[in-house]
Each structure stands twice: as C-alpha cells, then as structure tokens.
Amino acid sequence: MHPAKSVIYFTTASGAGYGLMIWLALLAAFGQGPHRLFGVAGFGVAFFLIISGLLSSTAHLGRPERAWRALSQWRSSWLSREGVLAILTFMPAGVFAFFWVVLGVNGGLILVVGLLAAVLSLLTVYTTSMIYASLKTIPAWSNSWTSINYLLMALISGGILALMLLQVFGVEYGAVVPASVVLLCALGAMAKLAYWRTIDVSPARSTAQSATGLGQFGKVHMVESPHSEDNYLLKEMGFSIARKHANALRRVALLCGFVLPMALVAAIGTVGPVMAMALLFVAVLFGAPGLTVERWLFFAEAKHVVTLYYGQSDV
C-alpha cells in the first residue's frame, strides 16, 4: 500500500496525543497534583498532536470540505466511528484540561471526567486501528496484532512525552511511571516482532488462481497488463518495497522506536535531574523517527489482493 505522509502523520501524531491524554488521566488517578505549568504543557502538546493529526487525515481527502459527512455512518464504518469518537473525546478532555489548568482541580468528579477522556482516547486509537484491521483485502492489516500494535504505540509515545514534560517542569513522580513506560516498550517491541512474524509466515489467503478462477488450468501469471502506464490501482495499492530495505527498516523501527527509548527511560532513575531530562529528550528524538518508520513500514509492507491481477502470485 502507498504510504501517504498525511496518513502516517495522522496515525502516529494523534496516537501519541491520545496516549498522552491517557497518561494525564492516569497520573491524576494515582494522586499527581494539578501542577499548572505541567498541565498547560501536557494538555497543550496532547491537543496539538490530536488536532494536527486529525487535520492531516483530512489532507488526503479528495473533498476535505465534505469531511463532516464522515460522522454519519458509524453503524457500519470504522472510519466513521473513529471520527465520532475523536469528536466525543474532546468534550471530557476539554473539561478535564480546563479544570486542571485554569481551576487547579484534577480530583473527585473531575478525575472521573478525566478517566472518561482516557477511556474514549483509548477507544479512538482502537477505532483508528480497526479502519485498517477490518480490511480483509490486506492480510498484513487484517490480523489481531494490528490493534495491539496501535494501542501499545500510543501508550509508549504518550508515556515518553509525559515523562519528558514531568522532568522539564520539575514535577515529582514515583518510580512506577518510568517502570511502566519501560514495561510498555518491552511489550511493544514483542508485539511488533509478533506482528512481523505473523505477516511473514501466514499462508496466502488469495492467489492469482483464485482471483481469476483459472487454477483448474494450472498456475496463473499475467501475460499482458490492461494498460501501459500505472493507473490509480497500481499507484495506490501496487506500492512495493524491496525485502532487503524492509529488513533494514524493521531494525531501525525496533531500535529507535522501542529498544533505545526503553534503555534511556530505564536509566533516568540512576542519574541526576538534568541528565535525566537530556536522556528523555534523546528518547523523544529517536522515538519519533522510530515510530514514523514503524508506521511507514505498516503501509509499505502491506500487500493488497488486487495486485493479483497485476502480476502478484499470492497475497
């Protein structure tokens, strides 16, 4: 599948934003006081990532001015559900942010509102993942690891951002927060490895034989394409990446997106606050491109069954 920049930014940025929103609610739930500046920065970054991500997702539309229509078909469409949940999430998230930042309250009833925002954030990331996981035509997406990966990546990227902001504003936090992020990084790496293993070893669901129904005559291959130049189908769904490059990029994604951030976050407890801040900056500096490469591969490595009509032998 063609890895569109707008969709890569949308899924990674909004994922990190919703992840940060979840962490803000969790911090409040575990007794973190409503530190004003941390609140401003935390909600500011979260809302910026979410809103810029959602706006970016409309950039790949042919008719962005009609985007509001996408809220209507939540009964059948995961894309529509994602839009509805994204907008619903703004309500409790906005109230939570207002009370934390302006009134300095993040406990009691406001904490309930915050936790509601966290649950809706988690559901929004899940619906984003289901847009892809529900497509039977793309076996690399339509498996249970897709949603697990999306949810873990959101919690990891949000967690690292939360830690960095806590450190920047000198907010006290216990050992549980970095320990949880380390654990999530480890889980995220394992889930990503499991995902790659799944797409590498899963038997093909469809073949050139089933696509043409000519299997009774032998093994099918294309002799002549219907057109000499690339058409929409080939540009959008015929994207292919060399195996050699995919393997190298998988290592980059694993190292930058999971292993390095895990090691850096694990080390912050052993160093002074300035050094800890530096380590967390480096974690973000590597984590962001790591996450981007992971998401780029998610698209670039995914094969669509329509390519069976254009020379692919099985998908």
Binding site: R63, R69, A70, I138
Partner: peptide, 17 residues
Amino acid sequence: CIGCKLCSWACPYGARE
C-alpha cells in the same frame, strides 16, 4: 463522496477508481 479512497482499499477486485 469525500474521496477518502477507503472503498477502493476494501474492494478485492479493483473495481473502484
């Protein structure tokens, strides 16, 4: 139609352009 192209991703037969 908003031109999100998701229908073309969902179709196995390349019927939508």
